[in-house]
Design a protein around this nucleic acid. Structure first.
Length: 703
RNA sequence: CGCGAAGUAGAGCAGCGGUAGCUCGUCGGGCUCAUAACCCGAAGGUCGUUGGUUCGAUCCCAGCCUUCGCAACCA
């Protein structure tokens, strides 16, 4: 067995301060990290658990524009809100910092300067859109235009809002600055880049060889994919006036790119924590005997496994020991989405459950329980309200809560509310087995947690309660109680059983503590023991409650979730999504989406001809494209059409079509396309050929 | 298209070369200390698909299909 490391540094992904976070974030990066941190603390390990708000980047000023306020107001608002939500859900950060803090700015600038001075960064000059009105370079998101794909005018420099296509600013037709409304000009700008390719050998060895077996397969797999795909240099600066100023003389108007400064936030958070607690932060980032673990979602793998480690290596820091990235959590059968309002925010749950009269800490633990139980550790998983109800009612309440409750009730009834004596002389196999089960469970949980298998570990805790229920059922002390009047010696059988049941209850408190801290606390209260009993080393012991010690009356650990409650939630989710989704029928009726009026001459420029499809085949390396051979009567030509998703190549041979015959040739996927086929799209997005009513000669004029 | 991950009972997952397991749900029985609960039992799967390697494959190999993801807002 390896020696445990001297200290642990645990990080959760820095949440971006442009909105509230949902339960997917919670399940992916915060609850697992919190469980891990609490587990290590209960073992008295040296552990620091850091997080904070990520407050730079283009999206913050955009959110400010949306809300009609300043970027500073936005980050203040969301930083505060997120901090509160995490506290409500008892995520036990040792510090929740923020990247707008001066200490972080200073740390990031030092980091950049360190790499820059050692020549680890390169500069490149590129042309980017520049808005003369506001005298700023435009981030992708600040450029609006017509989508080359669907012709909608709701396209931005990064993505089309209408068809969802990923775009680059250069692809936009008629780009316009969203700041000034003017057309932007191209202007040269230079930026600093991190040349990742130089570190390929290091990454290969470190990830694909050294961590081949102890990192999650999906993490290693993705890294391999990126490394094999060729590592591109990545810009570490941007032209923006929101962020950390680049600490160089000739860098006016440039800031560090948000992904560069955000992970450094882990370091500055550690520094701030050290200041607050009079500690030294350096060993946590420089001493090889520190275990650094990043808890993130799968979308963040590239930053935490490739880019940030390269930065850390160049800067002389330690590298992460593991990056247990989680997959995604879906909600009631669909992906979570802010724009479609299909989501459950942490705040919603807090308001609807935790802050309700029958809520409180038990509801925090219920959510922590369910989210851990369905954590998307190896593949995407799904949150459903019915699943939440089932998990709480049939596992937390019926198995765990009920075990504790029946133990307490019985102890008060049959043992005068005191911890009875255990007589070894009459111990039987079942007693021995129970003791063994406790020790085994502890060992099993330790193994699971060391491997970041939280779901399995939690299952084993509940399973131990299940075994407790079974033990009690088999011992039937309530039956034996009826014999005591005739045979006083039988009381010892009851005492033995209740002694074990009570010690098991104490053990359950220790084991459940990392997962459901409030529940563990409540159990301590009932057992009249101090929180120190929850130290991990106490798991497996059978003397946690002393003989003769009188315990409190039981209180229920969890309440049931009623059908109405989940019905309300499901309704809320669905009606929220309805409001967010634009109703297609209304749009078409209220604002007929017509383009600007044209004159006949404009139309006359278009030469439409009928044609017949002679052959069709899929274009390699393209999802949507079919390569068509069209007979136009006077000539045959090759036309590419983006209809592969709708038609099988074989099925459309011989079809009549209408072709824009004088469209300028355009190269797609290396093949020249000479014209365009007219298609009609129905309300379902399905495509239909536009064709003459009867079969007519190829090459006929259409007007 | 390519790359990564995943496809096992109604749901959620485990197994990863030797005649399919767990939890929840369903059905039946038992019990009654307990938040109408707990305990026991049963039903339910041609382990995505097609080939191959093997004495033997859910597990190894190859092809295919489906789902999710794939670098600059996003766990």
């Amino acid at each position: 067995m390896k020696q445990p490391p001297k200290r642990y540094l645990i990080t959760s992904a820095l949440p971006y301060a442009n909105g509230l976070k949902h339960i997917g974030h919670l399940a992916g990066a915060y609850i697992p990290a919190d469980i891990y941190a609490r587990y290590l603390r209960s073992q008295k390990r040296d552990v620091v658990f850091v997080c904070g708000s990520d407050e730079h980047g283009t999206a913050i000023p955009i959110q400010a524009m949306k809300e009609g306020t300043t970027p500073q107001a936005i980050i203040d608002k969301y930083h505060q809100a997120m901090k509160e939500d995490f506290a409500s859900l008892q995520i036990s950060f040792d510090i929740y910092h923020r990247t707008s803090d001066p200490l972080h700015h200073e740390t990031s600038r030092e980091f950049f300067t360190y790499l820059h001075d050692r020549g680890e960064l390169e500069t490149k000059e590129t042309e980017q859109y520049f808005d003369e009105g506001s005298q700023t370079f435009l981030a992708d998101r600040f450029i609006k235009g017509t989508c080359p794909n669907c012709k909608s005018d709701r396209a931005f420099g990064d993505q089309c809002e209408s068809c969802g296509a990923t775009l680059s600013p250069d692809e936009l037709i008629n780009p316009v600055s969203t700041i000034s409304g003017q057309a932007p000009i191209k202007k040269k700008t230079s930026h600093w880049y991190l040349p990742l390719a130089k570190h390929e050998a290091f990454l290969r060895d470190w990830i694909l060889v050294q961590h081949k077996d102890d990192w999650r397969p999906s993490v290693v797999g993705q890294c391999k994919s990126w490394i094999d795909g060729g590592l591109q240099s990545r810009a570490v600066t941007r032209d923006l006036n929101w962020g950390i100023k680049v600490p160089l003389e000739d860098a006016e108007g440039k800031v560090l790119y948000v992904w560069f400064d955000a992970p450094i936030g882990y370091i500055s958070a550690t520094k701030q924590w050290a200041i607050n607690n009079n500690k030294d932060w350096k060993p946590y980032w420089y001493d090889q005997d520190t275990q650094l673990v990043h808890f993130i979602g799968k979308d963040n793998i590239v930053f935490h496994c490739i880019i940030f480690p390269v930065m850390l290596k160049l800067h002389g820091n330690i590298l992460p020991t593991n990056v247990p990235a989680n997959e995604f959590l879906n909600l009631e059968g669909d992906k979570m989405s802010t724009s479609r309002n299909w989501k459950l925010e942490m705040r919603d749950y807090i308001d609807d459950f935790v802050n309700k009269e029958n809520g409180g800490d038990q509801c925090v633990d219920m959510l922590r329980y369910y989210l851990t139980q369905i954590a998307p550790e190896s593949k995407d998983s799904e949150f459903t309200w019915k699943g939440f109800q089932d998990a709480v009612n049939s596992e937390l309440v019926s198995i765990f809560g009920n075990y504790v409750n029946r133990t307490f009730v019985l102890m008060h009834k049959l043992c005068q509310g005191k911890v009875p004596k255990f007589d070894n002389a009459i111990a039987d196999e079942k007693d021995i087995q129970l003791v063994k089960d406790i020790a085994d469970t502890k060992a099993k949980i330790e193994v699971s947690l060391e491997q970041y298998k939280f779901r399995e570990a939690l299952f084993d805790v509940i399973d131990l309660a299940r075994k407790g229920n079974k033990y009690m059922q088999e011992k039937e002390p309530w039956i034996i109680a009826k014999q005591v009047a005739d045979n006083p010696a039988a009381q010892q059988l009851i005492d033995n059983c209740m002694f074990n049941c009570l010690q098991l209850t104490a053990n359950l408190a220790v084991l459940i503590n990392p997962f459901l801290p409030s529940t563990a606390k409540k159990m301590c209260y009932m057992m009249k023991v101090v929180d120190k009993m929850l130290d991990w080393e106490n798991a497996g012991k059978l003397n946690l409650l002393s003989v003769g010690y009188s315990l409190r009356e039981p209180q229920l650990l969890f309440r049931k979730i009623e059908d109405e409650e989940i019905a309300i939630q499901i309704n809320k989710l669905k009606s929220g999504a309805m409001e967010a989704s634009p109703k297609p029928a209304e749009i078409t009726s209220s604002e007929p989406q017509l383009k600007a009026e044209i004159v006949y001459d404009d139309f006359g420029k278009i030469d439409l001809k009928t044609g017949v499809i002679l052959s069709a085949q899929k274009v390699p390396k393209a999802d949507k494209l079919l390569q068509l051979e069209i007979d136009l009567g006077f000539e045959k030509r090759t036309i590419l059409s983006g209809i592969a998703m709708h038609f099988e190549p074989e099925a459309i041979i011989g079809k009549q079509v209408v072709v824009v015959a004088n469209l300028a040739p355009r190269k797609m996927r290396g093949i020249d396309s000479n014209g365009m086929i007219l298609m009609a799209e129905d309300e379902n997005g399905k495509l239909h050929f536009v064709q003459p009513e009867n079969v007519i000669a190829a090459g006929s004029k259409v007007s």
